[in-house]
C-alpha cells in the first residue's frame, strides 16, 4: 500500500466508526457554514461604503488612510494628492489593469514591472470587505501579486459597488468560479509584533496603505 492509503486506512481505523455517505457529510457541512450568520461581528454602519471607510481608518487596521472620489477618472488626482501629502515623487508601479491604463496619468512616471525597492504601487482591488476593512485581490494577467507586497506605499482603488459586508459574502460572491493562483486578503500595512509584542509597521511589505473609494454617490471629492 502507498503512504496515502496507509494514512487513509489509519484515519478510518482510529476513528472506529464507518465512513458516512458523502451526501450526509455535505449536508452537515452546509448546515455548519450557514450557522456562521448567527455569530459574525456586526457592521458599524448599515451603509457598506460608510462601514468600510470607518473600519479602514479605525485603530483596528494598521497604517491605513482613506480618500473618496466620485469617478474613477479622478483617481490620478487622488494619487497625486497622496504623493504630495507624503512628500513622494510621482514615479509608481501601476497595475496593468485596462481600467487604470485608460486613465489620464499625465505627469506621472509609470512602470508595469515592480522593482525590489518600489516606493509606490497603485492597484484596483477586486473586492473589499467592510467587516474587517479588507481589500481582496485575485492574481492574474492584469494583477500581479507582488504589487501588493514590495512597495512601501500601497494605494488600493475600490469601487463602491464592490464593497461586501462580511467575509462570508466573498465566498458567496465567488462561489463556483475557478480560483486564481492567489487570492490575497489585505488588511492594512505590513506589521510585526515579534519583538516584545510591540507593533511596528513595514516589516517586509508596505508600511502605508491608502484606500481610494470610487463612490458615484459622492458629488465633491473629500479627504479624511
Amino acid at each position: 500500500m502507498s503512504v496515502r492509503d496507509d494514512i487513509l486506512t489509519a484515519i478510518r481505523q482510529s476513528l472506529g466508526a464507518p465512513a458516512k455517505p458523502p451526501g450526509a457529510i455535505s449536508a452537515e457541512s452546509t448546515a455548519l457554514a450557514a450557522e456562521s450568520a448567527q455569530s459574525r461581528p456586526e457592521l458599524p454602519h448599515a451603509d457598506l461604503v460608510e462601514a468600510f471607510a470607518a473600519r479602514l481608518t479605525s485603530v483596528k487596521v494598521v497604517g491605513a488612510s482613506v480618500d473618496r472620489i466620485a469617478r474613477i477618472e479622478d483617481a490620478p488626482a487622488a494619487v497625486a494628492r497622496y504623493c504630495k501629502t507624503h512628500g513622494l515623487g510621482l514615479a509608481l508601479a501601476l497595475q496593468p489593469d485596462p481600467a487604470l491604463a485608460a486613465l489620464d496619468w499625465n505627469g506621472f512616471e509609470l512602470h508595469a514591472a515592480i522593482s525590489g525597492d518600489e516606493a509606490i504601487a497603485v492597484a484596483k482591488a477586486r473586492w473589499a470587505i467592510a467587516e474587517t476593512g479588507t481589500f481582496v485581490f485575485h492574481s492574474g494577467p492584469a494583477s500581479p501579486v507582488l504589487l501588493s507586497y514590495l512597495p512601501m506605499h500601497h494605494l488600493c482603488i475600490i469601487e463602491a459597488d464592490r464593497i461586501l459586508g462580511h467575509l462570508e459574502d466573498y465566498a458567496i460572491a465567488e462561489a463556483g468560479a475557478a480560483p486564481p493562483r492567489n487570492v490575497n486578503f489585505i488588511t492594512g500595512a505590513s506589521g510585526t509584533s515579534d519583538i516584545e509584542g510591540r507593533l511596528v509597521r513595514g516589516a517586509h511589505g508596505p508600511a502605508f496603505l491608502h484606500g481610494i473609494i470610487v463612490d458615484p454617490g459622492l458629488s465633491e471629492p473629500k479627504s479624511s
Partner: peptide
C-alpha cells in the same frame, strides 16, 4: 494583515 489562499502554480498569463 495578510490572509492568502494559494491555489496551484502560476496560471496562463500570470505575471508572477
Amino acid at each position: 494583515q495578510y490572509t492568502t489562499f494559494h491555489c496551484g502554480p502560476k496560471q496562463q498569463g500570470d505575471r508572477d
